[in-house]
């Protein structure tokens, strides 16, 4: 139960990151490949302030967010006028710098030894995990409501126009750089806030949590779910993280001997699904006009189908290995 709650909380963090990336890349065309950097900055900064300086969670969160907002604003100023490839490289570099500093600045982060223990912010009711989950849930729902409204708003229309043709938007009196800079600063800071909320979730922080695969997971989810749809990131995370990580790891009927294989099979299925989507539906599962009703029907169908497929597939594979093992044993005996 505790593990499931942890997984679901982590899932919400991923949904939040995908929502922010949707604004950056899906709406504005800013390819932020340093997602883990912003998230990791928030997580470590909040962690360090709480553990080393005994700051309260709220103070740590506010301080971290203000600092990250300033950093994102500065970074945005430097890179948002550049070509997309340059933005991509610069954001990767940013996340690499964050990861490096976490290892080298041992006086604050404890380096590879790890930093802990970070306690949950709300400790009122003996149900801190559940409360923390509820906070994350509220956060993600709030963000989702805002996103849906953004899509129907004038600001959303402007963002899409900037993504499509920035020069043309500027020639119609739109300060495109300012719009991008603001949106980037806000969403990057929120990625840091999600990091801050993940600190307590993980309780003990180590540098190997700040790895590019987190960035990739968020990107894959968004591209898979549909980068231009308000719900694309969320659906993508449900499918990748929800089905593959939580469902399979928790419930799939795999015998313990073969459990070590699950992560590899998972990666393989991840990749296969992504390739299939990119081949047959390049906009992602949801394109920009997909209606909510279709999403509901489609996702229920898809979830049922994939769970069935994955479970059947895994049990087949498991059976195959078992019979292999049995045969090998027989051979040994003989």
């Amino acid at each position: 139960m505790a593990y499931l709650l942890f997984s679901l909380s982590l899932l919400l963090v991923y949904v939040g990151l995908a929502q922010m990336l949707h604004v950056q890349f899906g709406l504005l065309g800013i390819p932020n490949f340093g997602v883990v950097g912003f998230w990791g900055f928030g997580m470590y900064f909040v962690g360090v302030l709480q553990v080393q300086l005994s700051m309260s969670f709220i103070d740590a969160m506010v301080l971290s967010s203000v600092l990250l907002a300033v950093i994102s604003y500065g970074l945005g100023h430097l890179i948002l006028r550049l070509e997309r490839q340059a933005i991509l490289c610069a954001t990767i570099a940013f996340s690499a710098i964050v990861a490096l500093l976490i290892v080298t600045e041992k006086w604050a982060t404890m380096g590879v030894v790890g930093l802990g223990t970070i306690r949950y912010p709300l400790r009122v009711f003996e149900a801190e995990e559940i409360l923390h989950f509820v906070i994350l849930l509220a956060f993600v729902i709030g963000a989702q409501i805002y996103l849906m409204r953004l899509h129907k708003s004038r600001l959303g229309r402007l963002m899409v126009a900037i993504r499509d043709n920035e020069e043309l938007a500027a020639s119609l009196g739109k300060d495109t750089f300012r719009v991008k800079l603001r949106a980037f600063t806000i969403t990057a800071t929120i990625m840091g806030i999600l990091g801050g909320l993940s600190a307590a979730l993980n309780q003990f922080l180590t540098p190997n949590m700040i790895v590019p695969s987190i960035t990739f997971a968020v990107w894959i989810s968004l591209v898979l779910g549909g980068k231009e749809h308000a719900l694309g990131g969320m659906i993508g995370v449900f499918i990748t993280f929800g089905i593959f990580d939580i469902f399979i790891e928790t419930y799939a009927p795999v015998s313990p001997e073969f459990a070590v294989l699950v992560p590899n099979i998972k990666l393989f299925l991840y990749g296969a699904l992504l390739v299939a989507v990119l081949l047959y539906r390049p906009t992602g599962l949801l394109d920009r006009d997909t209606e909510p009703r279709d999403i509901l029907i489609g996702s229920l169908g898809a979830i049922a189908a994939s769970i069935t497929a994955v479970v059947t597939g895994l049990s087949w594979i498991a059976k195959g290995f078992e019979s292999l093992a049995a045969r090998a044993k027989k051979d040994d005996d003989a």
Binding site: Y146, R149, L150, S153, R154, L155, R157, K174, V179, R182
Partner: peptide
């Protein structure tokens, strides 16, 4: 442009 705001969302 003055009508394209976050608050307007």
């Amino acid at each position: 442009h003055a009508d394209e705001t976050y608050r307007g969302v």
